[in-house]
Design a protein around this nucleic acid. Structure first.
Lengths: 199, 199
DNA sequence: ATGACCATGTAATCCGTTACATGATTCG
DNA sequence: CGAATCATGTAACGGATTACATGGTCAT
């Protein structure tokens, strides 16, 4: 399970389930997320397996916290996962499926609206990642040379998000252009009764 | 459920579960996939709900096929989904998680190897998509003007894959460069006993 | 005959989301 | 007093994968 390994990776410092969820939400972990209701049982299972150990610590405010830390076995498991080569998950894009079937609506205007909304959502997310990048990049350095090994790897990860989202926004713009071209062809076809527009 | 709507979208022509799985495998459907063992019960459930109807047709070779077609209700459901705005799934990238924690291995050379393998996998997939694009693009047209509405939407979808994968491959190259820079900094630090390399 | 492909399905298990349930502290 | 935040969990359901089970045709 990926989530198990990801939690192991996040547990450099001892942390509670709540802490880990907070880290997911902060967007630093833009490559994965999970709900508390999934995190708690997963941590419990990992402790039973001997990858984690936990102790209860009273908290300043609110109820006592169960704080987990990695065991030697847990670390061993993490390293194994890291050495196992890139895990290529089958990526799923429901919005792409929608786009591909959108011809069923029989109205290019709908496709246009869809792409405009999609672009806006993607652009919002891209901004988030750019903020994360700015926080990691020390002032005055074009490329981060002075980062710790851990931050350097995190930086590389954020760069992937930025590359990929920038490309998707550019794709939206390209698609919008093609759709508008097609719309204008259609209306001129109608007006002039043409069906071939070879040049 | 997305899969239900995707199957509805794919059922322009009547098809069996096996046919649909084949279409997934052919890479044309690069945005989603599903196993037969998920497809069969899903189709059955959709028929019970009245979105599909089926009849058994004997096959030239092999056992008889159960062929499904959309009902009016099924089409209604599809259109509703298409009109509901872009479904933004939380994307998960296990390989990115691996990269971000790879500092635990304490060996940049490992990170380098990882990125080289990742680049090769991504580049392979990019090639597949470029073939799919070439098949859709009529000879002599720079941009497809003469496609049917359905093919045009499919073309837009393939373009997204090409944009996004091209960006990811470029990211790999950038990351490889940064890693090599860092390696050379380190070795020169060692040789010359330096720790600051400000310029 | 052996393996590849056609074709359908069930069962067990796991992964993930949503909803529910509880209760303390702190700030306005 | 009420809302937000801290903090932990369970239950029910749905989504997805893997393994299992079956059997026919066709080409080598």
């Amino acid at each position: 399970m990926s989530l198990e390994n990801i939690l192991l990776g996040m547990l450099v410092e001892p942390a509670s389930g709540y802490d880990l969820k907070t880290e997911f939400s902060e967007g630093a972990r833009h490559f994965w997320s999970a709900e508390l209701s999934q995190i708690y049982p997963t941590l419990k299972r990992m402790e039973q397996r001997g990858w984690l150990c936990s102790e209860v610590a009273s908290s300043a405010k609110g109820p006592p916290r169960r704080v987990y830390r990695r065991t030697a076995d847990g670390r061993k498991q993490l390293l194994e996962w890291l050495r196992s080569g890139p895990r290529m998950g089958t990526e799923r894009f429901a919005y792409l499926a929608q786009l591909c079937f959108m011809h069923e609506l029989g109205d290019l205007e709908r496709t246009l609206d869809f792409m405009i909304e999609l672009r806006s959502r993607l652009a919002d997310f891209l901004l988030l990642l750019k903020h994360a990048e700015a926080e990691l990049t020390p002032a005055g350095e074009e490329f981060p040379e002075s980062l710790s090994e851990a931050d350097f790897h995190g930086y590389l990860g954020i760069r992937m998000g930025i590359h990929s989202l920038t490309a998707k926004v550019a794709w939206c713009d390209e698609a919008l252009e093609r759709i508008r071209e097609r719309q204008s062809h259609k209306s001129s076809d109608q007006q002039q009764g043409r069906h071939d527009r070879g040049r």
